[in-house]
């Protein structure tokens, strides 16, 4: 994918050559690494992957109607999970990400795709996303400025399990 930002040990970076292609409808034939809808992903996997005995060659993309829990049996064999924001105003992806990180224990890449914009990036990051495929007509470099957000978060997040009231006096 183009226009990709990824968080890493040394902070956020623009990713030049990302091998993955988002394919929410299954292409006829493709040599790229594909990020598939859940139903396409399930249909394409060999038995061994579905039994969680073999790493999948394909990544999966959750749509807003999908439940994060549906991925639970396959977490060990998924190379990457994407969460699709058909519009940035649909906030279901935040809960999906939060659950994947805090409840289901997903530790691999969690990528926001779709209507991914600068002004929501910090919220996405706090909910556990570590990669952001910024909408293609927008500048990813510019979007980097949106990642930090504000320095104060009252509640908990996927990256800070303690609410502020448990951190307040550590200052």
């Amino acid at each position: 994918m183009n226009n990709l930002i990824r968080l890493g040990g040394e902070g956020a970076k623009l990713v030049d050559a990302d091998p993955w292609m988002l394919a929410l409808t299954l292409p006829e034939d493709s040599t790229a690494l594909l990020i598939l809808s859940l139903s396409d992903w399930l249909a394409r996997q060999p038995e061994a992957v579905l039994r969680a005995e073999q790493i999948s060659a394909d990544a999966v993309c959750l749509q807003p109607d999908d439940e994060a829990e549906q991925l639970e049996p396959y977490l060990a064999v998924l190379p990457l999970i994407a969460v699709h924001f058909p519009t940035f105003r649909d906030g279901r992806g935040y809960s999906q990400a939060y659950l994947l990180r805090t409840r289901l224990g997903w530790q691999g890449e969690l990528r926001a795709v779709g209507d991914v914009l600068r002004d929501q990036l910090s919220h996405m990051r706090q909910c556990g996303f570590d990669a952001f495929a910024v909408r293609e007509d927008k500048s990813a470099e510019d979007a980097l400025k949106g990642l930090a957000g504000m320095s104060v978060l009252y509640g908990r997040s996927a990256i800070e399990p303690r609410p502020l009231f448990r951190r307040r006096d550590t200052l």
């Binding site: 649909d90 906030g91 935040y94 929501q120 919220h123 009252y154």
Partner: peptide
């Protein structure tokens, strides 16, 4: 007030 703080810019619940 505790609820106000908790709900303020709570990232998961800004696009309900």
């Amino acid at each position: 007030e505790i609820l106000r703080q908790w709900s303020t810019v709570n990232p998961e619940f800004l696009y309900l």
